[in-house]
Design a protein around this nucleic acid. Structure first.
Length: 204
DNA sequence: CAAATGATTCGCT
DNA sequence: GCGAATCATTTGG
């Protein structure tokens, strides 16, 4: 299976967000491989987007990686305790990104449950099984993604996305989550997810 | 079921 | 000092 290359990410955030659905996110840790399918994303459109950290061209140490080239990881801490994982899109100096909001476990699920709950898969409650990776903070914990990976090249061999197989699915466009402060931008339909998938964080 | 609440740290003003 | 691209848990109907 092919790894997504720099050109894939070198497009508008909205296009990349839609195109990432159904692709396979891979994280290699200590010789182990965690593989998940991306089922929910949000596009952050940079300078024109009041919900984006880079709105109006704001340039601080935290958002600096968004101003670099496409295909790099942007990981930040939210609410004091959770990480959020984004992939930088579009050309250099255009600070856009795609937030990964939900993934479906494919391989290495026992490693994921250890990361999340410190328990093997067999001992999880029903609620815990559903909650393994259906949210940005949750999937970061399951995949062991934290701020030490900020700026990592997604075209390398540690953390990357594979083409996957085209299964044919319906894409739903919805309002983004948790950005009530963003005025008119909060109503833009820039969240995308695979219809009927169990690992979508919030459905319409 | 939905709604309310506390946790906890960093980045920016 | 304030508030954040969240989550788990508790409370109430």
């Amino acid at each position: 299976m092919n790894k997504l290359n720099r050109e894939f990410y070198n497009r508008d955030s909205i296009i990349v967000a839609k195109d990432l659905l159904g692709k396979l996110l891979v994280h290699k840790i200590n010789g182990h491989e965690i593989i998940t399918k991306i089922v929910e994303t949000e596009a952050y459109m940079g300078v024109i987007d009041k919900a984006a950290h880079s709105y109006g061209g704001r340039r601080t140490p935290r958002v600096e990686v968004m101003y670099g080239g496409p295909g790099f990881a942007y990981v930040y801490l939210i609410y004091g305790m959770y990480n959020c994982f984004n992939i930088v899109t579009n050309e250099e100096a255009v600070p856009q990104a795609v937030l990964i909001r939900g993934v479906e476990p494919i391989e290495g699920i026992d490693i994921m449950t250890q990361n999340r709950y410190n328990k093997p898969y067999d001992l999880l409650s029903k609620n815990q099984v559903r909650g393994i990776s259906n949210g940005p903070g949750k999937l970061c914990k399951a995949l062991a993604i934290d701020r030490s990976l900020n700026g990592l090249d997604m075209c390398g061999n540690k953390l990357y996305v594979l083409e996957g197989v085209d299964e044919g699915f319906d894409i739903v466009a919805a309002k983004r989550i948790g950005i009530d402060y963003a005025e008119e931008a909060k109503d833009y339909l820039w969240r995308f997810y695979i219809k009927d998938n169990n690992y979508v964080s919030v459905k319409v």
